[in-house]
Design a protein around this nucleic acid. Structure first.
Length: 500
RNA sequence: GGCCCCAUCGUCUAGUGGUCUAGGACGCCAGAUUCUCAAUCUGGUAACGCGGGUUCGAUCCCCGCUGGGGCUACCA
């Protein structure tokens, strides 16, 4: 079997979008599955819209996702250059060949003429294809006009007859060539048109399978015709369905953040994003097992099993997958990853030391169950970083106002006094003591303690919170966090205040 | 307008001419657990767009319709 070579060929006209990321992913998976090569090519022939900074972002985003490439921009390779703007002479060379073979011709039509033709055809209710006006200009005349400096484009002479191809996800596809006007190969500024450049690049880079978005289906016949005119064998094609937003229109900024970098900023893990994207249009062979690594997915990936229908992007499912990964990454990495969010909120200093990071691990462990994304850490850890009896929830104030609750809290305070800092074991012993002393148990025992410690009715387990509060006492934090006894004392004085 | 693509629970999907009383996952609901909430576990809810064919029999094959999406550039 021929060597599998696939490519991802984005144009650097903006940030990497999740839709494109999925295309990149499926190419990567296919290459991995077949032990082939994955090429990254930059399609920057549209100088007006392309920007170098976007290429850098693209490379960063792809790397972050873990979709490494074997050849291409940034890594080099045998089929370079990998940036279309560096391949201009190649496009010229093959255009000349096509011209010499009379498979292509010079077109001197002005943009105004073409637009006028288009409008007329449209008005007549006919397909707006190129008229073919310059098709039969004799070579000598074309040469003369060229020498006179007349601006000209190069067009492919499209032959009669249908164009057929077999798409790896859609099956047999057929197009009538009489709706295809002679496409421009080279623009009058000498730059190649997209549909021409891809052909030259894919052929020269020996791409075996072109896997791309299904918005390219109708471009495919043109490209196949170009391969044929050059006497080359077209690659295999596979067209992936579009990703839609909740309203079933193409996923775009209107649906919120859609760039890969924005997902990173929100605190999605790359393995989660990529896992979710793979599930959009492809399903794992084993039912019920959807949390899979790139390697696991690559092993069972098949283009033929990819869905033809457009898929709606579902943030809920992405969140579920992200939660699954957040739970599995381990406290050290979690602390490391969450640091930037705490720093941004001023709760931590960037140079935080090992003890602080270790403590942060405890914090993350406590709030993990509440997180979809890492950018929620500050919000979800509010009751750890903020302690203000004046801001206690009304329900907590109320429950602390009872005599029973006051006794429980005071008893805890006495028990805690003997240990500093308090450990989970100390706390457990204290709870037993308090239970014995006050006769309170269960909810009546723990709830007043929770209310006094956090001022809230709900939150992480006390066994997790207590060591966090205690350890925080000695940490160099920008905003000090009171320990348990301090909290109890303040809560008790608050209650007294209310009574008066 | 023309051409093209697509159509199973709310969403992602499995599935095949009869075994489908249509499977899984997310979501949602309920129960279990817990000091509380979250997490977790268990259970439940929910779909073959419509109309014609073909066939002994269609979710699965064909046609039409409807709906959605795309292309229709000297953009990519």
């Amino acid at each position: 079997m021929e060597k599998v070579r696939v490519r991802f060929a984005p144009s650097p006209t903006g940030y990497l979008h999740v839709g494109n990321a999925r295309t990149a992913l499926f190419n990567w998976l296919f290459a991995r599955k077949h032990d082939g090569a994955y090429v990254l090519r930059i399609e920057d022939t549209d100088a007006e819209r392309s920007e170098a900074q976007y290429e850098t972002r693209l490379v960063e985003d792809l790397r972050w996702l873990g979709l490494d490439w074997d050849e291409g921009v940034d890594v080099g390779g045998a089929c370079g250059p990998y940036r279309q703007s560096d391949r201009l002479e190649l496009y010229q060379r093959y255009a000349r060949q096509l011209l010499d073979d009379r498979r292509a011709y010079y077109c001197f039509c002005t943009p105004e003429e073409i637009e006028a033709d288009r409008q007329r055809l449209l008005a007549e209710g006919r397909p707006p294809k190129y008229s073919g006006r310059c098709r039969s200009i004799p070579p000598q005349e074309a040469q003369r006009r060229l020498e006179r400096g007349e601006p000209s484009a190069v067009r492919l002479r499209v032959p009669e007859g249908p164009v057929r191809f077999r798409d790896l996800v859609h099956g047999e596809l057929e197009f009538s060539s009489d709706v295809i006007g002679d496409p421009v190969l080279l623009r009058s500024d000498g730059h190649p048109a997209y549909n021409y450049a891809v052909v030259i690049d894919d052929a020269l880079m020996k791409i075996s399978h072109v896997i791309r978005g299904d918005d390219h289906i109708s471009n495919t016949p043109r490209q196949i015709l170009t391969y044929q005119a050059l006497g080359w064998t077209p690659p295999h094609f596979a067209h992936l369905s579009t990703i839609l937003g909740k309203d079933h229109t193409r996923l775009s900024k209107r649906h919120g953040a859609t760039s890969v970098s924005s997902f990173r900023d929100q605190g999605y893990l790359p393995e989660a994003l990529v896992n979710y994207l793979a599930l959009l249009g492809w399903s794992p062979p084993e039912e019920g097992k959807e949390i899979l690594s790139l390697e696991q997915i690559a092993r069972s990936f098949e283009l033929g099993k990819v869905s033809k229908a457009a898929a709606v992007f579902d943030p809920d499912k992405l969140n579920w997958i992200n939660r699954a990964y957040l739970k599995s990454v381990g406290r050290a990495r979690l602390a490391e990853l969450s640091k930037r969010y705490f720093c941004a909120a001023g709760l931590l200093t960037p140079g935080a030391n090992g003890a602080v990071e270790d403590w942060l691990g405890d914090v993350m462990d406590a709030i993990l169950g509440y997180l979809d994304r890492l950018d929620q850490v500050v919000e979800k850890s509010g009751l750890i970083f903020q302690f203000d009896p004046a801001a206690f929830e009304p329900a907590s104030r109320e429950s602390l106002a009872s005599e029973e609750a006051r006794q429980v809290v005071e008893a805890f305070d006495r028990e805690f006094e003997q240990r500093d800092p308090l450990t989970v074991e100390d706390y457990r012993k204290a709870a037993q003591q308090v239970q014995r002393q006050t006769g309170q148990k269960g909810r009546n025992l723990f709830h007043p303690l929770r209310a006094a410690l956090t001022g809230a009715e709900k939150g992480p387990e006390l066994e997790k919170l207590i060591p966090i509060f205690e350890k925080a006492k000695v940490l160099p934090l920008p905003q000090p966090i009171p320990g348990c006894r301090e909290r109890l004392r303040q809560a008790l004085s608050l209650r007294t205040g209310i009574r008066k």
